[in-house]
């Protein structure tokens, strides 16, 4: 462990392009990340990068198989537990929202409300805090469909632009929390390889604070 370069797990998909740009901007050789072929562990000159699904970033970092990771706050809230969340990277910004079929009053009546979502833990926590007892229904994709088909009274989902909601006749009624990409660090690694981690973190922090990033 000591001798290998720091290994960083990046989230595939929505956050990937910006994360790759980040490492390119701070001086790493990211050509190999762009033309990665079938390689799974990519050496970008002093750092090892793996590209995995969002929830897996957390699993790899928590278990110490990767030292650091870049992952969305939504994934952290949904799955995360024991690691350090040390930087808000400022990209991948969006919001976790509650949305209902346009024109319906979510809070009316005494019937138990049904909430469809991919983020069952976030939804449960949110309604716990509100002191509202609801049914949570896990939906894997196109959550917007659930209220339209009468499966749920509301959805809790990530909203970037709101276009999908609008096109499907839904409207946002509440914000659960703002989201963005975060830099996370394995707890043991933070202590055992402190200097390397902090050096890289400082570079990334400068990148986050760069004028064109604001």
């Amino acid at each position: 462990m000591e001798n290998r370069p720091l290994r960083i797990a990046l989230t595939k998909g929505r956050l990937e392009e910006k994360a790759v740009q980040l490492f390119g901007d701070i001086g790493y050789d990211c050509d190999r990340l762009i033309n990665k072929g079938r390689k799974l562990v990519i050496d970008i000159g002093g750092l090892e990068i793996v590209l995995v699904k969002a929830a897996d970033v957390i699993t790899y970092v928590e278990n110490g198989a990767c030292d650091m990771g870049i992952v969305g706050k939504d994934t952290i809230l949904e799955y995360g537990k024991s690691f350090y969340e040390i930087l808000d990277l400022g990209f991948g910004k969006c919001r976790m929202m509650v949305a209902v079929k346009k024109g319906t009053d979510f809070y009316s009546g005494y019937s138990r409300k049904k909430i469809a979502t991919k983020f069952v833990n976030i939804a449960r926590e949110y309604y716990n805090k509100k002191g509202m007892d609801v049914d949570i229904i896990r939906i894997e994709g196109s959550v917007e469909l659930a209220p339209l088909l009468g499966l749920a009274d509301a959805i809790v989902d990530i909203v970037e632009t709101g276009v999908t909601l609008k096109e499907n006749g839904l409207e946002v009624i509440e914000e659960v929390c703002p989201l963005s990409a975060r830099l996370i660090v394995n707890t043991a690694c933070m202590k055992l390889r402190r200097e390397e981690v902090l050096e890289l973190t400082e570079k990334i922090e400068r990148w986050v604070d760069r004028p064109e990033g604001r």
């Binding site: 110490g64 198989a65 707890t187 043991a188 202590k191």
Partner: peptide
């Protein structure tokens, strides 16, 4: 306490 090679305390 931490040891090298283990990701947690």
């Amino acid at each position: 306490g931490y040891i090298t090679g283990s990701g947690s305390t």
